[in-house]
Design a protein around this nucleic acid. Structure first.
Length: 601
DNA sequence: GCCGTTTTCGGCCCGACTGTTTTCAGTCG
């Protein structure tokens, strides 16, 4: 195999920075504690970054990451250039490399890891976890000073879990987290002592993927609620259980943390554990300047003699007390929302009720396409669209397979579909008050041309263009490919623009700047694909697009009628990207929408 | 080591839970 330069993923860079942080904690020294915090924060920033740190470095943008300052940036520069960092080597020297493997285990921090490595004689990184596991099995850990049989058992469980998750290593899709949380909430609210139950954390912020599920419960009888939770039939193991907190592992392998508070301070609880961590840290720093100290129980005045805390039933009151507008959970990522809230400058986020139609739907109309056809008839889908309150929708099956049809056959198929819709359209309008557009989702070929004959395009109101194969073009080629496709007069929408599949595939490489610019100038729209595995455009790019005046559409890409309900996941993404109704074209009433699309109806 | 709506110096979020050395350090979120 050719020996190439090592590619540093964000995950690897973060792991290295965490090792340095851990080393500072063990070695101590001047400011070591705060250096450790700084390195930890930098690691988190890089883990959470939507761009690869290496790419940012390539573009000289490393300092854009909040938490990466001049010193760490310089070290990373050395890392990416030479493959190692002299300063890091010095900090890490003298410590057993194995400990940096062990700190990945939940419950084992730097001090514990160091102590274990020393006592058990584990040094090398390789097989460190395996050796720790063996030591635990043999009862060696319980004989180490400071450890007992309980911690030994706990370490064993944590390792087991780490290995299990490590194999999957995936955060669950938002839709799945919704399902698990809802089932549990349905069970919890049957408990007479539960006053309310709400999601927290990334689930409440509606992130595309969710790690652990956190729930908040309002109750005056925490012990009885804890007992109720322990009796939930899906619980496999109680991981920990206190007066206000219980963590359980479900049979499905998912961890749920439940936090209990009395109703009079429930607002503080919701706020505190909705996060994000960065949002809360920023908020606390802000509060500190006002002489206030925030916690999950409320707000304390630092100078006041009394220990009394101001409690908050609702989040609104909490934010108001700090002089801020209430910030929707989707925005709480410390991306400027706190500053905006100070000036009453938060956006009025788009809502599900604002939506007037869905433009990316695959029916079962037999079109002999190269990709999946839908399973439900146009009739069924139209009826559901009416139930959802839509004024319009569009059928956009995939283009007929090019390899299996001649040009003439392809045109015939498209003509057949056009005639079918034409024939039905007036009855749908008159009887159901819904307008049906005749669209198509057309593959963009590698050279940027559309995989549909020009003559067939004439029969369509508009087409959605998208990339379904040949993902590995260079950034420049891919950008040119997309721009060329969008430049066709019938191409109005770029579907699932990055091509990512959550947990399965990264998006392809594209330069967004020219695409944003082209869309803005030529009335082309980027799709927020609401299909739970896509959620594409991603929230960060939604924000960038909007800033540049690009209009978006939110579509489900449904292949079955029940998937029309997935539109809410597209709304989640749009809201996380600060989108208002005016930014989303399919919030427009029918006539204005048609005008925006350049379609005569 | 990072960062700035009174700061380029002087701070750095706050509290619960766990296990053990039983009075608190370590870890987590």
């Amino acid at each position: 195999m050719k020996k190439g330069k090592k590619v540093w993923t964000n995950e690897e860079v973060a792991k290295l920075l965490r090792a340095v942080a851990a080393a500072y904690q063990i070695k101590g020294g001047k400011n070591a504690k705060f250096k450790a915090i700084a390195y930890d924060r930098a690691a988190t920033a890089i883990e959470h970054s939507t761009s690869e740190a290496k790419d940012l470095w390539d573009d000289g943008q490393l300092d854009q990451l909040s938490g990466v300052g001049p010193s760490i940036a310089q070290h990373l520069d050395e890392l990416f250039r030479t493959g190692r960092v002299k300063h890091f080597d010095e900090v890490l020297s003298g410590l057993p490399p194995a400990m940096f493997e062990l700190i990945q285990i939940k419950g084992i921090g730097p001090k514990t890891a160091f102590k274990l490595c020393q006592a058990l004689g584990i040094r090398k990184a390789k097989n460190a976890l395996k050796r720790l596991e063996e030591a635990a099995r043999d009862g060696e850990i319980s004989r180490v000073v400071g450890f007992g049989s309980d911690s030994e058992a706990k370490i064993l469980r944590s390792i087991k879990r780490f290995v299990q998750i490590g194999q999957k290593k995936k955060r669950m899709l938002l839709v799945k987290a919704d399902f698990i949380a809802q089932e549990l909430i349905d069970y919890l609210i049957q408990c007479p002592e539960v006053i309310s139950a709400d999601p927290l954390g990334s689930l409440r912020r509606r992130c595309a993927t969710v790690g652990d599920i956190d729930l908040a419960l309002a109750t005056d009888q925490p012990q009885r609620v804890i007992d109720w939770i322990k009796r939930y039939s899906e619980v496999k193991e109680i991981l920990r259980s206190g007066e206000r907190l219980i963590s359980v592992l479900l049979k499905s392998g998912h961890q749920i943390d439940l936090r209990l508070h009395p109703p009079d301070s429930y607002g503080s609880l919701l706020q505190h554990f909705t996060g994000s961590k960065q949002h809360n840290i920023h908020l606390r720093e802000l509060a500190l300047e006002q002489g206030l100290s925030l916690s999950e129980y409320g707000i304390k005045k630092l100078k006041a003699k009394s220990e009394k805390r101001k409690k908050f039933k609702s989040e609104k009151d909490f934010y108001q007390y700090l002089g801020l507008e209430w910030i929707p959970p989707e925005l709480r990522e410390d991306r400027g929302e706190i500053e905006a809230a100070m000036e009453n400058g938060l956006p009025t986020l788009v809502k599900l009720e604002d939506m007037r139609g869905d433009l990316h739907i695959h029916s079962s109309f037999h079109i002999e396409s190269s990709h999946d056809e839908g399973v439900d008839s146009m009739e069924t889908i139209v009826k559901r669209g009416v139930e959802l309150g839509y004024q319009y929708l569009a059928f956009t099956e995939h283009n007929p397979s090019r390899s299996r049809h001649t040009t003439r056959e392809t045109i015939a198929i498209i003509k057949r579909k056009a005639h079918y819709i034409e024939q039905k359209r007036s009855s749908w309008i008159n009887n159901l008050n819904i307008y049906v557009f005749n669209g198509l989702e057309v593959d963009i070929r590698p050279n940027g041309s559309l995989a549909l004959p020009e003559a067939a395009l004439d029969y369509l109101d508009f087409v959605i263009v998208s990339i379904h194969s040949i993902f590995d073009l260079s950034r420049r080629e891919m950008t040119a490919r997309i721009l060329k496709a969008l430049s066709h007069p019938k191409a109005k929408i770029l579907a699932h623009p990055t091509g990512r599949l959550l947990n399965r595939r990264e998006g392809y490489e594209v330069d967004w700047e020219p695409i944003f610019e082209f869309c803005r100038q030529n009335n082309k729209f980027l799709e927020i694909n609401a299909y739970p595995e896509r959620l594409d455009l991603p929230d960060v790019l939604v924000r960038e697009a909007i800033k540049r005046g690009v209009k978006l559409v939110i579509n489900t890409d449904s292949h079955a009628v029940e998937q029309l309900d997935y539109l809410r996941y597209g709304i989640d993404v749009a809201r996380r990207g600060w989108a208002e109704a005016k930014d989303i074209v399919n919030t427009l009433p029918l006539k204005e929408f048609a005008r925006a699309m350049g379609i005569e109806i």
